[in-house]
Computed example of a mutant assay.
Amino acid sequence: MSTDLSNVIRPIAEAQGLPNAHYVDPDVFNEEKSALLFGTWAGLAVAADVPEPGDAKPITFLGLPLLLLRDRDGIVRVFQNTCRHRGMILVEEPRKIEGAIRCPYHSWCYSTKGDLVATPHVGGPGMNTHDKLDKATLGLIEIRSHIWRDVVFVNVSGTAAPFEEVHADLIARWSEFGAAPMVHGGADSTITLEVQTNWKLAVENYCESYHLPWVHPGLNSYSRLEDHYNIEEPGRYSGQGTLVYRQLTGAKGETFPDFPALSEKWDEGAEYITVYPNVLLGAQRDHAFAIILDPRDVDRTVEHIHLYYASEHTDDALRAANTAQWKTVFEEDIFVVEGMQRGRHGPGFDGGRFSPAMDGPTHCFHAWVADQMTAARQRLAAE
């Protein structure tokens, strides 16, 4: 199916949003899977999911069976979770790989670097080699990956420019955090939300602060709409920032330790940016978070939320309070994104309009989607 995206890429005052089909049509969902999520650097997981060498976690990403693995040298890798023999799934549940990755079907074995190291009885009973089978060419299929701010990004197609090139501006923008440790808060700093919405609506809502007074009255009581600013980098990323970030304080006045060597901008400032297509990041002086949007279907998304700190030594009660506070904020958005999803079934809705003053970050995302889709369609037409 080919949708008309010409109105989406117009200047914001004249533009319309993405057509309804981009939120409700399974065929368009599959088209976006290829163009937006497999063809670019998409967020898959966090490195903290596999903290120790040998740790393995199977992940299904848009139907693609993957294996997140920290190899014996501590390098995080992503493989297809598929045996090269008969296509069997290798790892069904998160676990520690003690020796090799063994296929449960015929016991072909792979090292944590993906090399095929054993093929029992492949040449007949007791014969573990065969002259027509070249083990060197039958290692696990590795998916191109890159880690930034602990997020494991993958480029499934293998065709995107290097991550550092694609996101050079954003990396430079937050370079002050570059040398600082990011310590995952642990089990009590992980939130999972299942939302009945298209993944793009979660991005659109996160990008802007326009909705704060009505959807987040508690947050807006101290970080008001007028204290926020738009972040608009067309074709790259977008989001919002605040000039009045307020540190969480415990009953005895305790706070989290700050990330080191930050400029005064971060004393009371914070930024919330979408790394296109599906990663939502928050940066504050004393903690950070990453939200990875996991599109399960055209109208179903799982949000994986992880909170990070500058030190392993954080107060348990304060950390739990911070998680609870953010969970409340993120849950407040659910009725909005689910309501927009239901509204997209209205056939008379034409994609909507944008406030030129308030919706710039969201329009940036819509225009990026339109540009990526248009380019993908042109490539297909040329083939």
Rank of each mutant, 00 (worst) to 15 (best):
S145Y: 12
D150W: 04
T82F: 02
S34H: 06
I141D: 08
G17V: 09
L68D: 05
V122C: 10
G114P: 06
V154H: 10
Q16M: 05
R144H: 05
L90P: 10
D131V: 14
A35D: 08
N20S: 09
C83N: 00
L133P: 02
C83W: 04
I101K: 06
G39M: 10
L66A: 11
C83Q: 07
M127V: 15
Q80M: 06
M127W: 06
A13N: 07
G123N: 14
G39T: 09
V24R: 08
H22F: 09
Y23D: 09
P94F: 00
A48F: 10
T129Y: 08
P104D: 14
K135P: 00
D131K: 15
F61G: 09
C109Q: 15
P104T: 13
A48C: 01
A15S: 07
L37D: 04
D115G: 03
D73G: 06
K96A: 05
A45Q: 03
L18C: 09
G74T: 11
G114E: 12
I89V: 09
D131R: 15
K113Q: 11
A48T: 01
C83T: 10
I101P: 08
D55Y: 02
L64P: 01
E98K: 13
P104E: 14
T137Y: 04
V76D: 02
V28Y: 05
A47S: 07
R95P: 10
G63H: 01
V46I: 15
D73T: 12
R95T: 12
W148T: 09
V28N: 06
I147G: 06
G114W: 05
R102A: 14
P53E: 07
V117D: 03
E93A: 12
D134S: 09
L66D: 10
V76W: 00
I75S: 00
S34V: 13
R84W: 06
D71K: 05
R95C: 13
N81C: 06
P120S: 09
F61K: 02
E98Q: 01
P58K: 11
L68N: 13
T40G: 00
D55A: 07
D71T: 07
K135V: 12
L64N: 00
F153S: 06
Y105A: 04
C109E: 15
A15Y: 10
K132M: 14
A100K: 11
D115V: 10
P65D: 08
E14K: 00
V91M: 01
P120F: 04
D49L: 08
N155M: 10
L138G: 10
H106K: 14
V91W: 01
I75K: 01
F29R: 08
L66S: 02
L68P: 15
T60D: 12
G39D: 05
P125L: 11
D134W: 06
W108P: 00
R149M: 14
R72P: 00
I59P: 00
K132Q: 15
K132T: 15
I89Q: 15
T129E: 15
G126D: 05
P58W: 09
H106M: 13
T119M: 15
